[in-house]
């Protein structure tokens, strides 16, 4: 057991999976010699060689498309897209090819790969380095979408993703990369994809979130009156998500606030809110609230904290929902 940051936990999972399975290779921009721009892959090229940790040409579609080929022909590639804003050029390969090969070939061609992508705002990055596009990829059949919010979860989920027989988009919240440390077991373990987690138990209101806002939700909950008991759910996987966990909680609390960084309209919160009214309409005691990014382009970093769902806005959402 060691006390690790998110970056270190991911690095550990990569190291152990590469040791355990020589089909696992990493490719991407600056992932080798430089250890990745966030140092997530630090030391891996020195350890596993240039054939397994590959500084690829600078081309996201090329990285994704060639990773698809690697996966089809028996490897377990882990392509890295340096920032979520650069997924755009690789969108076609990911959505129209990785997500469809199993279906269109009736299982005769499959794409077991894990696409690692730093995601989200809050680190004073340049434009197109702070977006939250998880709902876009969750919407496309054939792709799994994961977003851990803690070092422990990151290690277990990444190992599951690498071993998964289907393509997984593994979003890593940049804001959490070095935000805190957590005890992470040295031994390998897995956390099933599709399983959410109750971060704090409560009985009056359910907050559902994922990624970096888990921390802002905890901060908001600290400022609430003692007699308001809030249950916090970290979804951890966006697709397929743990609807049963949410339903169980909302049936208990009758109230729900959904928090995400992405814009409100068509954000993944919309899917969750719809699911809740489908499955526990008669248990609801208040309209579901959403605390999210705005329906605007993600602003440059001077205004990013006003854009992101920070503790004050989350507190407001919780208070309004609780008071209804």
């Amino acid at each position: 057991m060691s006390n690790l940051t998110l970056v270190q936990a991911i690095n550990l999972a990569l190291t152990q999976e590469m040791e355990a399975d020589d089909r696992v290779i990493i490719l991407g921009e600056d992932v080798g010699l430089n250890g990745g721009v966030f140092r997530v892959t630090e030391g891996l090229q020195q350890r596993f060689g240039e054939d397994r940790v590959v500084d690829s040409p600078l081309a996201e579609s090329g990285i994704m498309g060639s990773a698809i080929g690697l996966a089809i022909a028996g490897m377990r590639p882990i392509p890295e897209i340096q920032f979520e804003g650069f997924l755009g050029p690789a969108y076609d390969q990911l959505v129209n090819h990785a997500g469809r090969y199993r279906t269109r070939s009736r299982g005769s061609v499959t794409v077991p790969m894990t696409v690692r992508v730093p995601v989200g705002g809050g680190i004073h990055a340049p434009e197109l380095h702070s977006d939250s596009p998880e709902a876009i990829y969750a919407h496309h059949p054939g792709l799994k979408v994961v977003m851990p919010a803690s070092p422990f979860d990151a290690k277990g989920l990444l190992i599951s993703a690498i071993r998964d027989p289907d393509p997984v988009v593994f979003f890593e919240p940049k804001r959490l990369y070095r935000a805190f440390r957590e005890e992470v077991p040295e031994d390998e373990y897995t956390i099933p994809i599709g399983q959410g987690k109750i971060v704090e138990e409560g009985s009056d209101l359910t907050v559902v979130t994922w990624g970096a806002p888990v921390l802002q939700c905890l901060e908001a909950m600290d400022s609430l009156p003692d007699d308001l008991s809030v249950e916090l759910i970290d979804l951890r996987t966006i697709y397929p998500y743990d609807a049963d966990l949410i339903v169980e909680s909302v049936k208990k609390t009758g109230r729900c606030v959904i928090v995400h960084e992405a814009p409100k309209t068509c954000g993944f919160g919309a899917e969750i809110a719809t699911m809740i009214q489908e499955r526990c309409f008669l248990h609801l005691q208040a309209p579901i609230q959403r605390v999210t990014g705005f329906d605007t382009v993600m602003p440059y970093y001077k205004l990013e904290l006003e854009y992101l769902p920070e503790a004050a806005r989350i507190t407001q959402g919780i208070t309004a929902c609780a008071a209804y």
């Binding site: 290779i25 054939d51 579609s61 060639s66 080929g69 690697l70 022909a73 028996g74 490897m75 590639p77």
Partner: peptide, 20 residues
């Protein structure tokens, strides 16, 4: 069916054959 996207899969498949 889409034009020109599959050659990347060929590059990846060839790469896998080389590695293996």
């Amino acid at each position: 069916i889409p034009i020109g996207t599959h050659m990347l899969h060929a590059a990846g498949i060839a790469w896998a054959m080389k590695l293996r």
